[in-house]
Design a protein around this nucleic acid. Structure first.
Lengths: 187, 187
DNA sequence: GTTAGCATGTAAGGAGTTACATGATTTT
DNA sequence: AAAATCATGTAACTCCTTACATGCTAAC
């Protein structure tokens, strides 16, 4: 229950929806993370191996089109979530600690909010909100401080950085409000 | 002239402004990167050592307040840019390739734009612009694609991601326009 | 007198990438 | 028949963090 969780979470979360083989999983993973960080096979396959060894997922070689039953055909390996894996996933989705709202983990956690309990969702959103608020105030302070001593480009960089943080802050606040509303009306 | 450049660049760039010791350097580095990624000493000191060995910076032990001339006092080590280091920095600031406009490197490169040639600045901004445009169109495509098949939270995550990208895109376009204007008027 | 912040470092290891190696299938 | 893309994997390596180890100085 330690380690890099966020990675495992992403894999298990995707496999929950449907069994997949590595190549396809990688594409979904990249899309999930936001079209940016395309994770590499050198990372993915060992991770899948480890999850299989831990019993969280099961490997099944599938010969999609039932061609000649020869072993020459490099079979695709389809991974599916086991019962044990489903429980582990549930456990991971309970976590409402810092890992869930810090930069590295938040996106993935948010993507699986549909499978996350209301209370947990709210705690994560609140955690992220306060994290962003803290960052915003730090940036404001440093901007007010530097104002004169710092060159124009660095200033502009920080100004734009602050803008981005405040933007996400407003987004989160909107989400919190929406969560509260659906909670009150019962859906 | 290979390796992780961006790190070296940040250190050399800061030392160009004034000599600093490690502890202070780390704070500036963190501020430069945008109050987020506070780089660790386990990273910084070895990097400084390597730069010193390469001759790009020089170490001088300074006993700030001239107390008793005993060796017992753990001296702060002040690092300054050497002539060789200044040349290396100049060289690094010439680079207008992908490293300069990708996510990892762009911020630092931009922070030192005051010491970067106009032509190079424009190439870097243009590179970043096209990188962001590409990302934006990918995201739009994936959003249009998914629309129905995907759950609301993932959709919202992607929508917000796109918003962030378009925001930075507008920012960059503004900067490009500003560069062109100051270039034409000669200042 | 003890906590907090200044200051420098090392050893071990985590998390991931790149480059390589292989081969099947689909499209042009 | 060549090129692109699907598909799986390994070994070496890079970059960086954590945890540890040490000691000084200022504030409360």
């Amino acid at each position: 229950m330690k380690k890099s969780a966020v990675f495992d979470l992403a894999i298990l979360g995707l496999l929950q929806e449907s069994p997949l083989h590595g190549y396809e999983l990688r594409k979904r993973l990249s899309a999930l993370m936001g079209a940016f960080r395309a994770i590499s096979y050198g990372s993915l396959y060992p991770a899948l191996r480890a999850l299989a060894e831990a019993g969280y997922i099961s490997e099944t070689g599938d010969k999609t089109a039932p061609g000649p039953a020869l072993s020459s055909k490099r079979a695709r390996i389809t991974y599916s979530l086991t019962k044990l894996g489903a429980n582990y996933l549930k456990e991971l989705l309970q976590d409402s600690g810092p890992d869930a709202w810090e930069d590295e983990g938040f996106g993935v956690r948010f993507a699986f909010f549909a499978h996350t309990e209301e209370v947990v969702r709210q705690r994560i959103l609140e955690g992220r909100r306060s994290r962003l608020a803290e960052r915003s105030s730090q940036l404001k302070k440093s901007l007010a401080n530097a104002r004169d001593r710092i060159d124009q480009y660095t200033l502009e960089l920080h100004r734009h950085g602050l803008e981005g943080v405040e933007n996400e802050l407003r987004w989160i606040e909107g989400l919190i409000a929406a969560e509260n509303k659906t909670q009150r009306t019962g859906s």
